[in-house]
């Protein structure tokens, strides 16, 4: 590229670059700066407190609960949405063809098109202890002992929220993985079956390695979504019962908008940022090393 055309190109991307800088990186830096201050909205003065917010945050009992919940959500999501999604996609690719495949893909994809808030409200009914269909279903098959107030008991509330998200997003991830699988040349499977490899062997020897990049990106997206979890919790439990469903998003929100501790909330979100970035970088490095190309 000549200097002139490079300069011209720069000029053309300048507006977008400026926007990204102004709307993303400047607030990000401001947020980090704010995390060293105490600031109440009623008091326009910001007081510098150094690392006090960080010390307090690391000792905050809610942070532990939140991290545990976010990590549980991330782990389950990666296993179910990406892991099970890959199996489902490969089954769809293999055994469902033509219209049936299109139909099934739409069926699986459908939950992802419903707004998260609507899903949250919908599942509050599913989990309703007296009128919910989950308890009714358990009773119908004689498992009365398993019925409970799913969202009201600290031991089951977070699990119930996680389960709902799997219902909503597995189909979406499956649809994306199906595209990746369909890009694999069929000759590879033909050659493998001539060599005597069964469907399971083919899955692990061909499908898994050749979709690794897509799987990696989807895992990254799933994990970072897990760390940004917020809507589902607010709609279904608001962090309760007994704070058992607090996640990073809800404690940041609560500190900023309920408790009026803007500086502390900024500290929490800086920690979330560090965590997400760390995970993202690690994941990208790991997959780059293991990349397989056709």
């Amino acid at each position: 590229m000549t200097t002139t055309s490079r300069r011209r190109a720069l000029l053309w991307i300048a507006p977008a670059l400026l926007l990204v800088l102004a709307l993303m990186y400047v607030p990000l830096l401001q947020n980090i700066r704010l995390s060293f201050y105490n600031w109440s909205i009623f008091d326009q003065e910001m007081n510098f407190v150094g690392l006090k917010n960080y010390r307090q945050a690391l000792a905050d009992p809610f942070l532990g609960t939140a991290l545990r919940n976010n990590i549980a959500y991330a782990l389950v999501s990666v296993v179910v949405q990406v892991g099970f999604g890959l199996v489902l996609a490969s089954l769809l690719d293999r055994f469902a063809t033509g219209r049936l495949q299109g139909f099934l893909r739409s069926v699986y994809f459908l939950p992802a098109t419903i707004s998260m808030t609507v899903t949250g409200v919908l599942f509050t009914f599913v989990y309703d202890p007296n009128a919910g269909i989950l308890n009714a279903a358990l009773e119908a098959i004689g498992l009365d002992s398993l019925t409970r107030a799913w969202l009201a008991e600290p031991s089951t509330a977070m699990g119930s929220i996680i389960a709902m998200s799997q219902w909503q997003w597995t189909g979406y991830i499956t649809a994306l993985l199906l595209v990746a699988i369909q890009r694999i040349p069929t000759e590879m499977y033909e050659a493998a079956s001539l060599d005597g490899a069964g469907p399971v062997h083919q899955f692990f020897a061909i499908t898994v390695p050749l979709t690794r990049e897509m799987v990696a990106i989807l895992s990254l997206v799933t994990v970072s979504n897990a760390l940004l979890l917020f809507n589902e919790v607010i709609v279904m439990t608001n962090g309760g019962p007994n704070n058992s469903t607090q996640v990073l998003g809800t404690i940041v929100y609560q500190n900023a908008f309920v408790n009026d501790r803007m500086g502390y909330a900024a500290t929490m979100s800086t920690l979330v940022l560090a965590l997400t970035m760390g995970l993202g970088i690690a994941q990208l490095l790991w997959t780059r090393r293991k990349r397989v190309s056709l």
Partner: peptide, 12 residues
């Protein structure tokens, strides 16, 4: 109260 009141919405 309604049993398991903590798991029931105020609308229900």
């Amino acid at each position: 109260f309604t049993p398991s009141a903590n798991g029931i919405s105020s609308d229900s």
